[in-house]
Nucleic acid binder design. Structure first.
Lengths: 204, 204
DNA sequence: GTCTATATGACGATAGAC
DNA sequence: GTCTATCGTCATATAGAC
């Protein structure tokens, strides 16, 4: 299944390792700071190399952060594909949102591009980055439609709307508010957000 | 009821007008840009005065944005107090969230302080700013409890949790996503977010 | 390719004339 | 109090030695 990868020289492998380290440091920093607040000095210090060396791997800050986001999207795709294909679509949707929230709380996932965030406007311009979203959205939308046909999701809502709501829940500001309140641990927060997302606030 | 305000000289009134213009421009800019992305030059240009003049009114960027947020909170309080006292608590809660979303869509309300936003950490340090939140939260929490007692809201959820969820919905990233999708007008977006917030995504 | 050192530009804040 | 002009600082990005 996997295409044969040509053997790489030691030198090239070293570069790959370093590149990977840079990406990981970037992802981690993007969890703690905003895209605007994160500096190239931060990244260089975290990796332990000179700032100038960064620019041998990535031509700009935008480029670097784009690559970090693409890497995150790849992880999402991997998670989607690893889910039990036979499971109920609704359960898979809950699982994905829950997984995202857990990683958000653990600061293992970069800032999701919110409404007017500079990261979002930056991503707009890099099309290779945007194109990674397609397969993810397509997969989720299929599950949404299936769940609606099974009567597990409100069929009156357009699938695209549900998709956007789920994206929003995957980076829900409520998580930060509940975390700051300090009354709940991470697991409880995930459960609360999932519950209010799918069941709503109203008495049933 | 109102305390007698001493008469102000023309000069003082001019200053007040200018101060108000600065605050309004700041609020408007904070709708379009992040706190970090908004510059004092932006504000000065929008008002049509020199940047140095800003510092005669507000001692720093933090100070200015704090004042803008306080002004926004005052508007929220005014809206809360203007709501029909006899109305059902649940309806009042829906109304407040809907009002916030409408103003968010119209870009008439500053960026709400999200999870790790620099604005949020900035507000932490200015206590006069934070103290404005108290009355708003107190009022909302009373309505939440009342709605739960009437069986209109899920009584199994702690009121504080409902409060934080509502705050999150009032600045829901879903609004931006749906707006970018371009398929729905503002009124529809508000209705969709309100519906999925209170009723959830699951079929009832 | 990696480093030190620096160019370039943006932003917050201030000085000083009027 | 308002302006023009400028300082100090920090961040992106680059130059040039090794």
């Amino acid at each position: 299944m996997t295409t044969a990868t040509p053997r790489r020289s030691f030198r090239e492998q070293m570069l790959d390792v370093r590149q990977e380290a840079i990406l990981q440091a970037t992802s981690q920093l993007l969890c703690q700071k905003t895209f605007a607040a994160m500096t190239m000095d931060d990244v260089a210090d975290a990796v332990g190399i000179a700032k100038a060396s960064l620019y041998k791997h990535f031509s700009s800050k935008d480029d670097l952060c784009c690559a970090a986001v693409v890497q995150m999207l790849a992880q999402v795709r991997a998670y989607l594909e690893a889910l039990e294909p036979e499971a109920a679509p609704l359960d898979k949707l809950r699982a994905v949102v829950g997984w995202s929230l857990e990683r958000l709380l653990a600061q293992e996932i970069p800032e999701w591009p919110g409404s007017h965030s500079p990261l979002r406007t930056m991503l707009r311009e890099h099309q290779d980055c945007l194109s990674e979203w397609g397969p993810v959205s397509q997969c989720l939308e299929q599950w949404i439609t299936a769940a609606q046909q099974q009567g597990a999701l409100d069929a009156a809502l357009p699938p695209r709307v549900v998709l956007h709501i789920l994206y929003a829940r995957a980076c829900d500001p409520a998580v930060g508010f509940l975390q700051d309140a300090g009354q709940y641990d991470d697991t409880e927060i995930v459960q609360l957000v999932l519950r209010t997302c799918f069941d709503g606030l109203a008495a049933r």
